[in-house]
Nucleic acid binder design. Structure first.
Lengths: 100, 100
DNA sequence: TTGGTATATCGGGAAAAGTCGATATATTTG
DNA sequence: CAAATATATCGACTTTTCCCGATATACCAA
């Protein structure tokens, strides 16, 4: 089982918070609207500002969440936009019911 | 959110394996039958033998799983029997659907 | 009570994760 | 091309986790 990376990704308060924020981007990242809208997600800088962590830490955390499948990245120009992949949450919920 | 302890508990291969083993005690711990049956669960020694870890490590891991709610302990004489608490898995599955 | 068995707890060394600042890379703009 | 901006990666340090051996505790049996 390599689900371990999934659970590790969820074993951190800041990362859990980012996932929660990304459920409602319009509410949690209002500045993103001026920026580029929400079609592709929210860019790293917005998340960093809200998380109160350094840029490098936020970048790495987003990458951990992405590798675990919870978010998707889309590069547009100099920005990387992240948004939730709801399917991953569904899949995890089912996996816990049937495989754990 | 103090769900973090839950996810940390699941972030270890040996602990995940123990949970899996305890889904089918009769199959995974056949010696337990000679011992005391399966009503109360499986005792630490059986799990240790199968896990290939030291007694202290197994004892601690079981305690971590218990604190996270995934298993229950019952002391009978000099043995402690552990068994799954299926409700915790159900609850986690639902939590992921609605709160994550 | 003495010894034997099962489990829990304690202390520690090694590995992994958390987090930072500095630097590298990519992209846009002048 | 050079400068500016956004993000990613690197190196280091601290904290946490992993896992062990040794010791303590609980219970049982003679």
């Amino acid at each position: 089982m390599e689900n371990i990376e999934i659970f590790k990704a969820l074993s951190n308060k800041s990362r859990l918070q980012m996932l929660e924020w990304l459920k409602e981007p319009e509410i949690n990242f209002p500045d993103q609207l001026q920026h580029a809208g929400f079609e592709h997600g929210v860019c790293v800088g917005q998340i960093q500002a809200k998380a109160g962590l350094t840029q490098s830490t936020v970048s790495e955390y987003l990458s951990i969440l992405q590798r675990a499948g919870f978010i998707e990245a889309k590069r547009v120009g100099q920005w990387t936009y992240y948004k939730r992949n709801e399917g991953a949450f569904e899949a995890l919920s089912k996996l816990i019911q049937s495989n754990l």
